[in-house]
């Protein structure tokens, strides 16, 4: 694919459309899923199965007045929700949905995604700091320590995978997992690694994704029973809407990355339909698990969250890294 202007525009528009559509309809999926778990119907009035709910909600949010609290830092206050949505959309550019469907493949794709993911944490800090609200402030302080604590094990685990595949190119990582289901990085029986600890890497990575995207049980930033709504306490209208959509867009990115790194990307266990559909299927199964987890568990505490990261996840992932390095040296 040549890098022409048209190509770039199409790719960016497609990425934005995909992200926005996902974000909107994941809200619907979350509400329906939560409702099913709690044995109620969920949104079912607007359109079939309530499918018109997200656009209507969007219209409602857009129709609302955007209030900026007195004494708030205006520029930062407005920048924060944009910062929440923008990195997630940018990350889509480099994610390969199949061996042909990718906006722009890069040989350092992972690096780019992580670079953008770190910006997500900044939006929370911006929002909390600029709101001039004590709850929001406390939330942003939490967000910083949470982001620091969970990026470390996440990166270490990613390095483990990168070491096995020997590439930071997302396409290459997926290609190496082709063959059968046993070639996937999560089940390292066949393929180029025999690392039996990989399922644990997957668990660590998945937990970190939960924490990175601020999802329950790690949603300390917006712990509604303590900090009212956390960093977006003062946001209304589409400012809040962007935060909300950004959260779901981040989930999609996180799940895409998990799929690529551990679940074999678009590789299909047994033909049937084209690879891209397998990718989508794996992606939504992971997202479903996110929703399922959110509606099952209570929230952790901030020190519980940090303990989990520093005392359990980081030592385990470091050990895993060393173990993998040893394996690679021996074989």
């Amino acid at each position: 694919m040549r890098l022409t202007l048209i190509n770039v525009v199409i790719a960016v528009v497609a990425a934005i459309a995909f992200a926005a559509l996902n974000a909107a309809y994941l809200v619907w999926a979350e509400r329906r899923g939560a409702a099913r778990i709690q044995r109620r119907p969920g949104p079912n009035i607007n359109g079939p199965f309530g499918l018109l709910q997200p656009p209507l909600d969007g219209i409602k949010l857009m129709a609302k007045q955007l209030t900026i609290p007195g004494g708030a830092d205006k520029a930062m206050f407005i920048a924060a929700p944009i910062l929440a949505m923008f990195p997630a959309i940018m990350s889509f550019v480099t994610i390969p949905f199949s061996d042909t469907i990718v906006a722009k493949n890069m040989n350092v794709g992972i690096l780019m995604i992580f670079a953008f993911a770190s910006m997500g944490g900044m939006s929370l800090v911006f929002a909390g700091w600029s709101s001039r609200n004590k709850y929001a402030m406390m939330s942003s302080v939490r967000a910083v320590s949470q982001a620091v604590a969970y990026e470390i094990p996440m990166l270490i685990t990613t390095i483990t995978v990168v070491m096995i595949t020997g590439s930071m190119d997302l396409m290459e990582i997926v290609r190496q997992q082709s063959g059968s289901i046993l070639h996937w990085n999560i089940f390292p029986v066949l393929g180029n690694s025999h690392n039996l600890l990989m399922p644990f890497s997957f668990l660590i990575f998945f937990t970190c994704t939960l924490a990175e995207t601020n999802r329950a049980p790690f949603d300390l930033g917006e712990a509604e029973s303590e900090l009212v709504a956390g960093f977006h306490t003062e946001y209304g209208s589409m400012g809040f809407g962007l935060f909300f959509m950004g959260e779901y867009a981040n989930i999609v990115v996180g799940s895409c990355l998990t799929t690529i790194l551990f679940l074999g990307g678009w590789n299909c266990p047994f033909g049937l339909f084209p690879g891209v559909w397998w990718f989508i299927l794996k992606l939504y199964l992971l997202i479903g698990t996110f929703i399922w987890i959110r509606w099952t568990f209570p929230r952790t505490t901030i020190y519980g969250l940090l303990n989990l990261s520093w005392k359990i996840l980081i030592p385990l992932s470091l050990f895993n890294l060393l173990f993998t390095a040893g394996l690679l040296k021996v074989f």
């Binding site: 044995r39 399922w292 099952t296």
Partner: peptide, 13 residues
Amino acid sequence: TFKEFFKPTVTVA
């Protein structure tokens, strides 16, 4: 929660 997911709803619309 997985089991509850497949149970019928109990609410009245």
